[in-house]
Structures are given as structure tokens and as C-alpha cells.
Design a binder for these strands. Sequence first.
DNA 1: CGTGGAAATTGATATAAATCAAATTCGCTT
DNA 2: AAGCGAATTTGATTTATATCAATTTCCACG
Lengths: 188, 188
Amino acid sequence: MNDALFTLLNSISPMSAGLTAHLSSVLVSREIARNEVLLKRGQVCSHIYFVERGMLHCFYERNDVKITAWFMQENDVIISAKSFFLQIPGEESIVALEDTVVHGISFQELQDIYVMFPEFNVAGRVLTSKYYMQSEERLYYLRRERARDRYLFLLNTQPEIVRRAPLKHIASYLGITMETLSRIRSSM
Amino acid sequence: MNDALFTLLNSISPMSAGLTAHLSSVLVSREIARNEVLLKRGQVCSHIYFVERGMLHCFYERNDVKITAWFMQENDVIISAKSFFLQIPGEESIVALEDTVVHGISFQELQDIYVMFPEFNVAGRVLTSKYYMQSEERLYYLRRERARDRYLFLLNTQPEIVRRAPLKHIASYLGITMETLSRIRSSM
DNA sequence: CGTGGAAATTGATATAAATCAAATTCGCTT
DNA sequence: AAGCGAATTTGATTTATATCAATTTCCACG
């Protein structure tokens, strides 16, 4: 039932039977209904989750406007980065955009695994670098491109997001207003 | 002479004598004069460097305009992320903005260290997460703030950059034109 | 030192996108 | 299936910032 997660982890660095068994024993599955909150602003992001099915977004607020920081879907590993790594309260909230199933472990359990199974640091390092690269890529086009080109880039690189997420969240993710995105769409 | 680097690494995860000795033996120091190129667009970022002294910036081009992706200075570990992690040619160049001294090792040497000294994966993981958080933070204010507020944020969080880097590079880093940044400055 | 080219400033104008304001469509819930 | 609130679209206007165009200032180098 956690096949996808174990497939992912084994593809990064094959896991010993002991590590596999231990990880299985501490993983907790959780169903999150559409619009349900997984992490609320002001809380510490205490868990790291693997998305089995569904989609979520992470956002923060300016004035009363929600700005989406990312969308994550099947096969993604999700955290509110700063809050999780530093175990401090964060500005970000995480909410499911569809009915979602995740498997998670706590920060402390993860640290324990890093100590008990040092080879697991490889997976931690590789997955962190994956999301780091994604983050840099987003910066790249936010600084560089016009609204229309940012949308086209998203359409090319992550068509799933465009298909599944509401327009207003896509707009804030691209750093533009929903009116502008609506006009971009109708002009295509 | 590599004190700062070893201090940093030991603060993340104390290093064994064997690891310390091995790392010392493979580290290569390099002086880079102001305006000298450390990595050129189209090349594979083959090395990871620790900055002992000086400052560099990483940039890419659109049309003929250079866009700064980051500034790095003393105590930073630098790579062109995607090019280094995937060992593929990248769009980014890295150039010294001051006379600079770095200590570096190759991608392959780093992989060897991860295998020979698994505990070094901890340092890799922690440093990657550090720069990942920085990248997310940059995204945060690029999406959310106006030109003036982005500049103020930079001034608050990384005053060294503002003091040491040329205005035109700071402007592109903030995703604005140098004329706009110049006007923001004169209005303060 | 003095000078030539790069960097920064300043001004005038253009424009992409934001904002404000309805109107319309969509999609739940009963 | 109807109705209601949320999401999206459309329109009019404003605004922040880009762009184009000269100066002026700053340094690096002879």
C-alpha cells in the first residue's frame, strides 16, 4: 500500500530489510478531505508526508490574499520547508485541493532514522536537492518572464497543476492576479 | 587554512579524523580574480566550492541581459544547482565580483566521500536544506512584494550584498531594472 | 593624475498588469 | 433539479515599472 513511496526510496538508494521494516512501522497513513487543513499557519510543521494520491497546496497570506507557494501531488514529498527543518512555527498553511491520501512520519522519527540507518541520509539529501532545484527553477522564471510566459512555462512543465488546480491559486503561484490569468487564458 | 570550512562542517556533524584527513587531501584551493569566470554557461558544474574570502555571483541571460540568480560570499558553499546535481551543462555562469579564494572538490570526489564516509551525507543534507530554505524565501518575496519592499527586505536580510555588489546586479537579482532600483535608492 | 569606458542617475514616455466593479458561470448542497 | 455562494470572466481605469534616451559620476588603467 506504500508501494510508491518504497519504490521511490529504493530508486534513490536501495534500502535494507531492517530500514524497510522500521520505516513501515513508523509511517502513518492519513486521509485528507478536499479543503481540509494539513498544516495551519502558526503551527510547527511536525511531519513530513509522502503523497499517495491527491493534490495539496501550500500558501501564505499577504493582507488577506492567499499566495500559493507550491502545489504537490502524487509521489511528492511535502513539508513547509523552513518550519520543518528548523522546527519553528511558520507562516505557511497546507490544504488539500482534492481528497488526498498521505503517509507521514514526524520530524523526530526522521532524525532517529537518520541516526539508526545512516544510509537513509542519502535519500534525505537527494530529495532535498530535488526540491531545491525545483525552487531555483521557479525563481528563474519569476524573475525573468512576463505573466504570459510564466503561465506557458507552467503549462509545459506541470500541466497537471493547470488541469487540477483552481485558477485563482495558479495565478497567485505565478505572482499575478486572477484577472490577469483569466485574460491570458482567453487570449490563447 | 581551511579552518572556516572545517568549523562549519564540524558544527553540522562532527567529523572523524579519517574524514577530516581525507577531505583535506582532496580539497583544492583556488584564487579567482575579480571578474574572472569560475563556471561558464554551457559547461557542467563539475566542482562544489566553499568560499573562504570574497564574493561571487551566478547569473543567466535572457536576450542579452544578465540576471543574477544569487550572490555568495564568505562561508557559503556554491554550485550551479541543477548543473551540479545532475552533472549536465547549465545555463548559469559564475563570476567573481571581488578577488576571491575558494576551496573545492569535484562531483565525483564528493560522491566517493558520501560512500566512504556515510556520515558525511548528514552535512550534504543539512547544507542542501539550508540553501533550499534560502531559495524558498527569495520566492516568497519575489511573488509577494513590490520592487521597493523587495529591496528593503534584501537590505535587512543581506546588507552585505547591498554594500558589496554593483547596483545593476542587485536590480536583476530583485527582478527589476537598474533604473527602478536607482530611483528607489534616491527616494530613501 | 588624467582619461575613457562602464556604471549609475535622471527624465520622458509607454505598457503590462493591478485594481475596482459588475456580470456571468460553475458546482455544491439540499 | 433549483438555488446560492464561490469562482471566473469581462470591462474601465489606474499605477508601478519598463523602456528609451541623455547626462553625470565613478574608477581602473596607463
